[in-house]
Design a protein around this nucleic acid. Structure first.
Lengths: 136, 136
DNA sequence: ATTGTAAATCGTAACGATTATGAATTAGAA
DNA sequence: TTCTAATTCATAATCGTTACGATTTACAAT
């Protein structure tokens, strides 16, 4: 997703255009990686020394709710990245060295659909971890 | 895994037999669910009011290292349960209401093995969340 | 343009989960 | 029974995150 698309969504949902949001989106648009709230904070602190934790965490949460960012738990910390463009459901290989991701256009749930009758599936997580070709 | 098997492993690795470890294992042997450090603490505090955080967290960590417990991140908290008996690799359906699990004897990596050449796979996570037959 | 108002941010503190530490206790070998 | 390393206790520190009243700001209505 690009910044324009993100603003479209924000505007449609009645959120205001602010410098802080612009800068957060800017940071995400410049990387493929999953990054933490603290990563964002560090970058923004350099420019706006008076940044508040509240601003970062509240906006990250908002962006996830609106489908602008996607979130995953990595080594005990929440990590975020711009939502993929791909219009169909998919999963990710995550490089534990450089943090870059590769889209995996395959979902195990397809073949598992009828394997557990009586169980009401709400959600699933499928992630692959390792090193990408550039990191070994 | 049962308590005897756990003690076997602990003894073999040179760990001592203590009341606290006995009680922690006891708790895990009585449930199928993923539970938190605090769950353990609450139960044990009732009996031993002077319990230390340290004792719980250190032992949980040890047990995971030794393969006695398995660990997963659920809603921001580490959850633990007794390692499955099953001798082959498998995954879990986790009920978000009652916490019980169902073993899923299927692994998506089988069909994905050769799909991402050049990527060195170290690990993967595949979990299904929802409600079990008893919870809906 | 100016004003009004809800939204957003700031500054700071609180919170919950986890880790760390030095002193006291204890399991198990000698 | 004694010795010693392992374990636990008691407590504080740390880390990521959330909360909140006061202040500022975007933007819609005038």
């Amino acid at each position: 997703m690009n910044i324009e698309k993100a603003w479209e969504i924000l505007k449609k949902e009645g959120f205001k255009k602010t410098d802080k949001r612009e800068q957060i989106l800017e940071i995400f648009s410049q990387t493929e990686k999953y990054i933490t709230a603290r990563d964002i904070l560090d970058v923004m602190m350099a420019e706006h020394p008076g940044m508040s934790y509240d601003t970062i965490y509240r906006n990250l949460s908002t962006f996830v709710d609106l489908g602008i960012l996607e979130e995953t738990e990595l080594t005990g910390e929440k990590h975020f990245r711009m939502q993929c463009e791909a219009d169909h459901h998919h999963h990710h290989f995550i490089c534990m060295s450089c943090g870059n991701i590769k889209e995996i256009h395959y979902c195990p749930m397809e073949t598992l659909q009828n394997a557990i009758p009586g169980y009401q599936i709400e959600n699933h997580k499928f992630e692959i971890y390792g090193n990408c070709p550039e990191c070994h």
